[in-house]
C-alpha cells in the first residue's frame, strides 16, 4: 500500500492533499483575511478574496482593548497547568506503580468524570461559588477549568508510568530511596514528555474555555480573551474585522504550540503513545 517510489507517481496525491488541506483550512484563512479587511470593504460584493489593501485597524483595536484579557488568559492557563500537574502526577504514580487499593474504581471514576457535560459542572460550580464568594475570581476559574484536564492528565500519566521498567525503581530502592525520592528523582524526570503533553492540553483547554468563563466570570474585572471576543460580538456586530483580529490573536497560542510541539499534540490524542 505504501508507495515505494515516492516522486513521480504520487505527485497527484500531493496535489490532492494540498487541495483537501486548503479546503479544510479555508475558514482559518478567511478569519485572517477578514481581520485585515477595511470596514467599508467588509460588505463588498463580491467579497475581497485577498487583503490587497490591508488595514491594521482591527489589530490596533485588539491591542488597545484586549491586552488585559490576553494577560488574564495567560494567567489562567498557567495556573491550570500548575494545578493539573500537581494533582495528576502523584496520582498517576500511585495508580501505576504503587498498587493503590481501589485503583480500578478510581480509573473508572476518572473515565466517567470525562463524560459529564461542562454545562452541568458550570451550574454546580456556580451554586458552590455563589456561597463562597468565588464568582468572578481568577482562582475560581482556574479550578473550574482544571476539571477538564485533571482526569485526562491522570489517565495519561498512569498509562505512561506503568511502562517504566521496574528495574529502575528497584535500583532506586537499593540506593535507599523512599517512595517520595523515587518519585521526584526517577519517575518524574522519566515522565517529562507526559508532563509536556499534559501541560500543553491543560493550557490550551483553559485558554479556549468559554463555558466556565461565561458563567463563573461574567461580571469579573479580569475576563479571559474568549469572553472578550464574545462581548465584542455582542457590542460591535458591524466591526467584524476587529472581531476576527481578536480571534486571530486568540489563536496564536494554538498556532505556536502546533509548530513547536506537534508531536506532543498527536501524542495527546493517541495518548499513551508517548515514548522516549
Amino acid at each position: 500500500m505504501t508507495a515505494r517510489r515516492p516522486g513521480r507517481k504520487t505527485w497527484w496525491k500531493t496535489a490532492l492533499g494540498v487541495l483537501f488541506t486548503a479546503l479544510m483550512l479555508f475558514p482559518v484563512y478567511w478569519m485572517f483575511n477578514v481581520s485585515l479587511t477595511r470596514t467599508r470593504d467588509l460588505r463588498a460584493d463580491p467579497p475581497h478574496w485577498f487583503p490587497w489593501d490591508p488595514t491594521f485597524e482591527g489589530y490596533e483595536a485588539v491591542l488597545g482593548q484586549q491586552l488585559p484579557a490576553l494577560g488574564t488568559s495567560l494567567l489562567i492557563g498557567a495556573g491550570c497547568v500548575v494545578l493539573t500537574v500537581l494533582v495528576a502526577a502523584p496520582a498517576g504514580y500511585a495508580l501505576a506503580l504503587l498498587n493503590l487499593r481501589g485503583r480500578r474504581t478510581l480509573n473508572f471514576v476518572l473515565l466517567v468524570a470525562q463524560m459529564i457535560p461542562a454545562v452541568v459542572m458550570a451550574m454546580g460550580f456556580y451554586a458552590v461559588y455563589v456561597r463562597l464568594g468565588l464568582l468572578n475570581t481568577v482562582g475560581g476559574l482556574i479550578v473550574a477549568d482544571s476539571t477538564v484536564a485533571v482526569p485526562f492528565a491522570v489517565l495519561l500519566y498512569t498509562a505512561f508510568m506503568s511502562g517504566i521498567p521496574r528495574e529502575m525503581l528497584q535500583a532506586a530502592r537499593m540506593d535507599g530511596a523512599g517512595a517520595w525520592r523515587t518519585f521526584v528523582s526517577v519517575v518524574l524526570p522519566l515522565s517529562r514528555n507526559s508532563t509536556l503533553t499534559v501541560s500543553l492540553f491543560a493550557f490550551l483547554w483553559a485558554w479556549s474555555d468559554f463555558i466556565f468563563a461565561s458563567t463563573l466570570n461574567r461580571n469579573g474585572n479580569l475576563i479571559p480573551i474568549t469572553l472578550g471576543i464574545y462581548n465584542y460580538i455582542g457590542n460591535n456586530t458591524t466591526q467584524w474585522n476587529a472581531i476576527m483580529a481578536t480571534a486571530v490573536v486568540a489563536s496564536v497560542p494554538a498556532a505556536v504550540l502546533l509548530v513547536v510541539a506537534q508531536r506532543y499534540v498527536a501524542a495527546g490524542v493517541t495518548a499513551g503513545a508517548v515514548k522516549d
Partner: peptide, 29 residues
C-alpha cells in the same frame, strides 16, 4: 493519508489546526 507521498506528514499536521483553535474563534468565524 495512509499512503505516504511528498508533504503527507506536513499536510496531516495542518489538519489539526481547526481543532486547536478556541471554539469561540471557530464559531464566530
Amino acid at each position: 493519508f495512509r499512503s505516504s507521498f511528498r508533504l503527507s506528514a506536513v499536510l496531516r499536521g495542518m489538519f489539526l489546526v481547526p481543532w486547536l483553535l478556541p471554539l469561540i474563534v471557530s464559531a464566530s468565524t
